[in-house]
Simulated scan of single mutants.
Amino acid sequence: MRTFTRMAAVAGAAFVTLAAATAFAGDLRPFETKAFEAAQRAGTAIVVDVWASWCPTCAAQEPIIEKLISSPEFSSVTVFKVDFDKQKEVVQALGAQRQSTLIAFKGASETARSVGDTDAASIEALFRSALKN
């Protein structure tokens, strides 16, 4: 019985930790035009991540982005991931010349853009620009 109680306590603690982490998590989703446009109309803080599976710079950006959206400060940011190879029309419409492009928006207004940046502080500044009114 004690083993079951300990297991239940451990499982409960893990659930509370996971729930707390998810409570602050921003939204990370594949790019869909309708969802992106709805987020813009709503005035949402948005970061568009133009990435490619084969891109080492994109791979370096990924943990930085994941860390930022898991923090309370950026819990209201929605990150839309655009596949550079499969979503060419979207890439072109956004004016992205290369993969590893990050574009921040506050609603429909672009607030910052970077290409090939793997510096955590400057990516954080890009995210922060999407939060400004």
Rank of each mutant, 00 (worst) to 15 (best):
Phe31Pro: 02
Phe84His: 09
Thr78Asn: 01
Val90Asp: 02
Leu28Arg: 11
Asp85Glu: 14
Lys88Gly: 10
Glu110Phe: 04
Ser53Ile: 13
Leu28His: 10
Lys81Leu: 08
Asn133Ser: 15
Glu110Leu: 01
Ala96Gln: 02
Ala19Phe: 12
Arg113Gly: 08
Ser76Ala: 13
Arg113Leu: 09
Pro56Asp: 08
Ile46Asn: 00
Phe74His: 04
Leu126Thr: 03
Ala25Val: 08
Lys132Trp: 07
Asp117Ile: 05
Phe74Gln: 00
Ile65Phe: 11
Gln99Val: 01
Thr33Arg: 15
Pro63Tyr: 10
Ala130Phe: 07
Ala14Leu: 15
Phe105Gly: 00
Phe84Pro: 05
Gln92Arg: 15
Trp51Ser: 15
Leu28Val: 14
Glu110Val: 10
Ala11Pro: 02
Glu124Asp: 04
Ala45Val: 06
Phe105Tyr: 13
Gln40Ile: 07
Ala35His: 13
Pro56Cys: 09
Glu32Gln: 13
Ala45Ile: 06
Lys81Gly: 10
Ala104Ile: 00
Ala20Gly: 14
Phe105Asp: 01
Gln61Arg: 12
Gly95Ile: 00
Thr44Tyr: 02
Gly12Val: 05
Arg128His: 10
Leu94Trp: 04
Phe74Asp: 00
Ala125Phe: 07
Ala42His: 03
Ala19Ile: 07
Ser109Gly: 12
Thr101Cys: 01
Ala25Phe: 03
Ser75Gln: 10
Lys132Arg: 13
Ala25Gln: 14
Val115Leu: 07
Ala39Val: 04
Ala21Asn: 09
Phe36Val: 00
Gly107Ser: 07
Arg128Gln: 11
Cys55Tyr: 05
Ala35Phe: 11
Ala19Lys: 09
Ser53Ala: 14
Ser100Asn: 00
Lys106Ser: 11
Glu66Ser: 12
Ala38Gly: 03
Val48Ala: 04
Ala38Glu: 12
Ile123Tyr: 08
